[in-house]
Design a protein around this nucleic acid. Structure first.
Lengths: 128, 128
DNA sequence: TTTCTAATTAACCAAAAGGTTAAATAAAGT
DNA sequence: ACTTTATTTAACCTTTTGGTTAATTAGAAA
């Protein structure tokens, strides 16, 4: 059963070891042992992480004698960022000023009397 | 063992059902049954997804009689996008024009003769 | 050819993820 | 009081994930 690229990308990014590896590779090509060095973890474990990153398209592996230098291929990150950007307005909160206002109002009222049920937040209207 | 917010956020986002729920909530508050409706999945399964989203801070749940209306709280997405933006230059490829050029050169050579091993890509140099 | 170095594969394990059905809870409606 | 609606919890199952150690492969160096 095929999994979409976006899911694979986010799955690759949800492990801190893998994000650290990506961060390291931003500084240029690194071998497996170089990448493993800062982590308190066996080499096979790192190898598995690299396989996940490779299959997600986030890295590519070359060959230099016995070494397998890895380099970053950040293209899949673009898709991820594009998806996230769709929601920018939500965290930049110009959009839900009303919701934020009502949330705070409710919070202060609960804090003030603590007995009355707060009024329901109305669902947001379309932009005028 | 505590898990960092970024890992939790990416983990929440790596499931397509959960991303669909987020997308739906961008249109405003929705109840659990409303959110479940488009998915070929049991209600408890949706309930679990919502719990994941709630624990990651991506949604908040209110109360309206028996209903538990969910609303989007996109704040954690900002952290995710901030992390990703660090790598923008990598997919916008002004940085690795050389690498891209060499990749394409190698690809066309392999396509052309298919027998000679392509020359090793040199590791990227520091910006001049 | 033997030996060292770099990395992967194999076999295993525990815990987490993602789903199921059946039962429980909460509030409203009759 | 009973029923209906909305949702969660419990118990269970299978697959995936993230790690381990031991063995294997690949190539360089002696």
């Amino acid at each position: 059963m095929p999994v979409d690229q976006l899911s694979v990308t986010f799955a690759a990014l949800c492990d801190p070891t893998r994000r650290a590896i990506i961060a390291r590779l931003a500084g240029g090509e690194r071998t497996v042992t170089e990448l493993a060095e800062p982590h308190d973890m066996s080499l096979p474990a790192i190898s598995k992480h690299l396989r996940v990153l490779e299959q997600s398209g986030l890295i590519e592996r070359g060959r230099d004698a016995q070494r397998r230098p890895c380099r970053l291929k950040a293209a899949p990150l673009k898709e991820a960022v594009d998806w996230l950007e769709e929601y920018r307005r939500f965290w930049e909160q110009s959009f839900d000023r009303l919701a934020v206002y009502l949330d705070e109002l409710q919070a202060s009222q609960r804090a003030a009397d603590g007995k009355k049920r707060p009024p329901r937040t109305p669902s947001p209207k379309k932009a005028p």
